[in-house]
Design a binder for these strands. Sequence first.
DNA 1: TCGGGATGAATGAACGTTCATTCAAGACGG
DNA 2: CCGTCTTGAATGAACGTTCATTCATCCCGA
Lengths: 191, 191
Amino acid sequence: MKKPDKRGDILQAALELIAAQGFHGAPMSEIAAKAGVAAGTIYRYFSNKDDLIAEIYQTLEETMIEAILEESSGGRPVRERFLALQRVSIKYFIAHPLHFRFMEQFFNSPYGDKMRRDNLLGKPGKNNLLIGIFSEGLAQRILKDFPLPIIFSLATGPMMFMMRDHVFGFITLDDALVERTTEACWDAIRR
Amino acid sequence: MKKPDKRGDILQAALELIAAQGFHGAPMSEIAAKAGVAAGTIYRYFSNKDDLIAEIYQTLEETMIEAILEESSGGRPVRERFLALQRVSIKYFIAHPLHFRFMEQFFNSPYGDKMRRDNLLGKPGKNNLLIGIFSEGLAQRILKDFPLPIIFSLATGPMMFMMRDHVFGFITLDDALVERTTEACWDAIRR
DNA sequence: TCGGGATGAATGAACGTTCATTCAAGACGG
DNA sequence: CCGTCTTGAATGAACGTTCATTCATCCCGA
């Protein structure tokens, strides 16, 4: 009758608790309770809490990349590709606020710090797309002559802040607003 | 010979530990050790850890506002006032990376969440300056017609991201770069 | 000698993690 | 087809650790 996907239940419960309360508002005991499982059962599927968290992250990253990649049209101009990617990213997060909150928590934690350092060495994921677009824009002198991380900050920083305001209900990002803010970010980086 | 300012020592030790390791890498016992004080002594000056943290926040906020307010030239054009304020904010954080790291931790925690909600009701601090400038820019139709929180995100988001990259050593923000990134933010919000 | 500041061992709560035990469901021999 | 054995997922009480916080005691200047 039911599908006893305990592993999935645990992942989902942990995601929801962490997104809502942060890593420290999500003790294993509560995750277990929310998943309808005993505390010890979690360790049948994950070797420890860090492992559980890392697995959530990887799952989300894959899902996001998949959702965003579809929108990645190849040969179009840099501007259009940037706008499309930015737009679809924002819309993904609006549609999946839990994912956004989790990612936010994740990147503002020791986990995220380590990941940042790793990414320096260049084995990134979704960022590859943006980096590719930016590199091309830089080469074509369409973008301001900034180091990549700065272009990245100019484009991504506002998005994260706006998403947070949206998730917390301080603003409401409708389609029109998404479009206009995306273009505002383009104004910041375009030459 | 020395000044036995235990209270100040405790605040400073806590600031340094929290900035470097986060709230959870800063147990009271270590704060006490670093301040050259016994664990129990902290409770003579602060009623609990939350109180200690809140006090650090308030101290930093006051210090920052004071440092930034000096730069607040009154009657100049909106653009110049924005650039000056942004510039001086970035430079303040570059000069005080501990303050930046603490603020970052603070705002990405339950403490910061509560503060955000409070700020909605409008008893803010340094933000007042920015809000004043933005309101004026909006009224004069110099800025794009966005809700205030979005203008805020467009201006502040990149700064925070860049500061983090700078503090972590991924980029180096020299004067020239600060100037140019500040203008890039202006491009994002100006009409 | 007196009194408040300082001490740090003690306390108890909150966690992550472990492990002895349970038990439903398949395997198997007769 | 039945009864018994085996398996391993699931359980949750218990453990060890980490902390914030307390308080009996000590220290020291006046």
